[in-house]
């Protein structure tokens, strides 16, 4: 389906154009060739459909079964109910876990965006000794696996005899998350024209005024993208929360512990469905915000930004 709808961008579209220019060899008109010409498009559509099914099918199933009136999650369908949602709402552990995750992720997002944008500015616009090392340190955080950072954090805090809590989770999340903001915003800063900043300074703007009126509007979409990712990185983070949280549970840690004990499963279904729905909304809201901020219809550069965050 995807290939058939493709406008001139695709290769498939180029083939007939080339054939029209050249004297058309009659073989190209045969039925076999016409079918074979359609096949790649069909195969492409099937591939995309298959991948989407594998990526989202399980979660959709989970959402469906959160309304099933049965304490075990399997067929047959026992009837529609919302009781698991009521139970989930009444479940103190579930509420605490979600609330903890929301608090940590919000704090981490705000601080990451501030610190990350500052650092990105410093790294792209200032010349100083040790710049390479600071940049390297930021980059290193992004490639070290979270399991290892989590274990290191646990050992570090236990050696210092610091009680593990939401604060230790937040600190560790912040340290792994703001370098991502640095990466995304740096890419945005490198892209736009420095001459505008210099013009502002020449016209008598202070550094702060220049940042506020020239730079911020230009890197708005980058900051929006970075915010979405910073929130998601913290909210979804399991390993670091697991090792540096002590007795405090975030949402992923709570799901993990419930699954380990294999109890209360329909409640997990209900909570997970709400979380997944909120995350879907958040991504599309973020996308809309980025489009507004960028004031252009160039979807491709925006997707570039958004996909850049997954690196």
């Amino acid at each position: 389906m995807a290939g058939a709808a493709a406008p001139p961008a695709g290769l498939g579209a180029r083939r007939p154009a080339a054939a029209a220019d050249d004297p058309p060899p009659p073989v190209h008109r045969s039925l076999g060739h016409r079918i074979r010409g359609r096949l790649p498009g069909l195969a492409g559509g099937l591939l995309v459909a298959f991948v989407m099914l594998v990526l989202f099918g399980p979660v959709l199933m989970l959402a469906l079964f959160s309304f099933n009136d049965s304490s075990i999650i399997s067929l047959p369908w026992e009837g529609f109910t919302t009781k698991w949602y009521e139970e989930a709402w009444a479940n103190g552990q579930a509420r605490d876990a979600v609330a903890n995750s929301l608090i940590v992720a919000t704090v981490v997002m705000v601080l990451s965006v501030v610190l990350g944008t500052m650092a990105a500015w410093g790294l792209t616009r200032l010349r100083f000794r040790g710049r390479g090392m600071v940049a390297g340190l930021n980059g290193a955080v992004l490639v070290v696996p979270w399991l290892i950072i989590g274990v290191a954090g646990l050992i570090f805090f236990s050696q210092l005899q610091v009680q593990l809590s939401l604060t230790t989770i937040t600190l560790m999340h912040l340290v792994v998350t703001f370098p991502l903001v640095v990466a995304i915003v740096s890419a945005g800063l490198v892209r736009f024209q420095r001459s505008l900043e210099e013009a502002a300074i020449d016209l008598g703007a202070t550094q702060l005024q220049m940042l506020r009126y020239v730079v911020l509007p230009q890197i708005g979409p980058s900051i929006a993208a970075a915010s979405i990712f910073a929130f998601a990185w913290s909210f979804n983070n399991f390993e670091i929360s697991f090792f540096t949280g002590g007795f405090e549970q975030t949402f992923p840690v709570w799901v993990f512990s419930i699954l380990r004990q294999s109890e209360n499963l329909p409640v997990v279904n209900a909570v997970s469905t709400v979380i997944a729905a909120a995350q879907i909304l958040a991504v599309f809201a973020g996308w809309a915000l980025m489009k507004r901020l960028s004031k252009s219809d160039d979807d491709e550069s925006l997707t570039g930004l958004l996909t850049g965050g997954t690196r």
Binding site: L62, I228, N236, F251, P252, A276, Q279, A282
Partner: peptide, 8 residues
């Protein structure tokens, strides 16, 4: 797909 919670 990447943003969905891995635990979910």
């Amino acid at each position: 797909a990447d943003e969905l919670n891995p635990m979910v």
